[in-house]
Structures are given as structure tokens and as C-alpha cells.
């Protein structure tokens, strides 16, 4: 069917395609591997803690454990006390929790392995993003679906800037599972007004507090001092000194 000529051509082109495929696979392996891009880094933790069980099945909000994130730069991994809030009475003889009990009894922190890490010359602040109602999933993926936390985003400078330039494209708005405060929680139930207290009925709109109803009420910051005020996200900064200082 084939002449020798065509046969040789087919062989050559097959050889060439094969070479390209193998070369690209090898370069893909080294170029896209988690050890190079950081995406897909999934360290085995000392205790088989599952976000899927705690956040998705039990519906515990992220902020129950990662409490400081709306007021501080750093989002803390919970201390053993937080686990013991429930595990003092739940799963008492579960062998998977042996490490937690040991840490509790010996007053020794659990050595969780850090997943997300920026170089230390970059200053990232959680609270500005959380108060702008940006959901954790924008940057960490759907953690509540993960058995073991895996890094889902490259955390490069280009990635930060992409979102800062076009937040509407990349921001996942606050979801209930995160526990992010939006100030609109009472909107659906607004008709059942409280019958006690001073009857001052205020509303938050775009980060400002507005009085509604008959009474003119001058908002005094001290009244609600200690409560964070959420806002709508604007564009993020692109000046170098916002992140490198």
C-alpha cells in the first residue's frame, strides 16, 4: 500500500510528533509541577483534620476557627483551645484526636505545617480584604470541599495585581460559610423590630451608617466601637509601596 518513500515520511513525522510530545511533557512536568508553581502544594498535617467534615458537613464557619482575620493582617490557624471547645465532649476516644489531646494536656502547640506562604518582603493584610467582603474562596479555593488543605492559587505578584485591576472579575462575594460580616444580615427580617431598648434603628449602606425611621439619630462611633464596619470593594492598589515596604 505504502511506497518506501511515504513509509519513511510517516515514520519521520511520527518520530517528530513523538519528540515534541515527550519534550513538552517533560517541560510541563518541570514547569507546572507544584514544587515550581506552588499550586497544588498539599502537606500532610500532623493530625488528619478535615475542613470537609468541619466546614461543609457540620457547617462551622471559617471564622469560628480563623477568628482574627477581619481585624488583623494575619489569619491565625486555631490554637488547641479552639479544638477543645467541642472536642472536650465530642470524639473523646477517637484515636485521630490523640494529637489534639496530647497538645492540650502538655500545653504544647500542634505543629501544623504552613501551606500558603508569601515571601517576607511582601506585606499582605487579610483584614482589608475581608472588610471589603472578599470571600476566602477568591484566594484559597473552596477549602470546605478539601480533606487536606491544598494551595489553589499561585500567590504571585501578577496574581495579586490581576485582581486589584479587575476586582469584579476575580472577587467571589462573601458566602455564608465564611462568616464574613456584610452588615445586611437583618435585611430579610427587618419587619420584626425590637420592642426593647432605645428604639434607635440604624442601617449600614456602603460602609456608612444611616439613620432610618422617624427619629433623627446622630451616629456616635463610641456606641458601636469595637464592631468592624464592612464596605464595598473598590479597586486594589498598584503602587509598589502598598505591598513592599
Amino acid at each position: 500500500m505504502f511506497t518506501k518513500d511515504i513509509d519513511a515520511k510517516i515514520k519521520r513525522s511520527i518520530g517528530l510528533t513523538l519528540f515534541v510530545l515527550v519534550a513538552s511533557a517533560v517541560s510541563a512536568y518541570f514547569g507546572l509541577h507544584p514544587r515550581v508553581t506552588d499550586v497544588g502544594y498539599r502537606p500532610t498535617q500532623p493530625i488528619p483534620f478535615s475542613h470537609k467534615l468541619h466546614a461543609d458537613t457540620l457547617g462551622i464557619k471559617c471564622m469560628y476557627c480563623h477568628t482574627g482575620v477581619e481585624v488583623s493582617k494575619h489569619s491565625p490557624v486555631p490554637e488547641t483551645q479552639t479544638c477543645m471547645n467541642c472536642h472536650i465532649a465530642v470524639g473523646i476516644d477517637n484515636p485521630k484526636l490523640a494529637g489534639v489531646r496530647e497538645s492540650w494536656e502538655q500545653n504544647k502547640p500542634i505543629a501544623w505545617r504552613q501551606v500558603h506562604k508569601l515571601p517576607e518582603y511582601v506585606h499582605f493584610n487579610h483584614s482589608v480584604h475581608i472588610l471589603a467582603q472578599i470571600d476566602c474562596a477568591s484566594c484559597h479555593g473552596e477549602v470546605e470541599k478539601m480533606g487536606v488543605v491544598t494551595q489553589m492559587q499561585p500567590l504571585t505578584m501578577g496574581w495579586c495585581l490581576n485582581c486589584h485591576r479587575n476586582p469584579e472579575k476575580y472577587v467571589v462575594p462573601a458566602r455564608p460559610i465564611s462568616g464574613i460580616f456584610t452588615g445586611t444580615e437583618m435585611a430579610a427580617w427587618g419587619q420584626s423590630k425590637p420592642t426593647w431598648g432605645s428604639g434607635r434603628w440604624l442601617k449600614v449602606k456602603d460602609g456608612k451608617i444611616e439613620a432610618i425611621g422617624k427619629q433623627e439619630y446622630q451616629f456616635v462611633a463610641a456606641d458601636v466601637a469595637g464592631i468592624v464596619i464592612p464596605k464595598k470593594p473598590s479597586k486594589g492598589p498598584e503602587t509598589c509601596s502598598a505591598c513592599h515596604y
Binding site: F181, E185, M186, W196, G197, G199, W201, L202
Partner: peptide
């Protein structure tokens, strides 16, 4: 209770209660 009863305060209360 030192806080006034306002929609904002109740919204915060609801958010923290549900968390």
C-alpha cells in the same frame, strides 16, 4: 447593655451568633 438596638448592631449580633 451599653449598645443601642439598631439594625447594624443586630446584623452584627446575627453574624457573630451564627458563627
Amino acid at each position: 447593655n451599653p449598645l443601642p438596638v439598631t439594625e447594624f448592631v443586630l446584623a452584627r449580633g446575627k453574624n457573630r451568633f451564627e458563627t
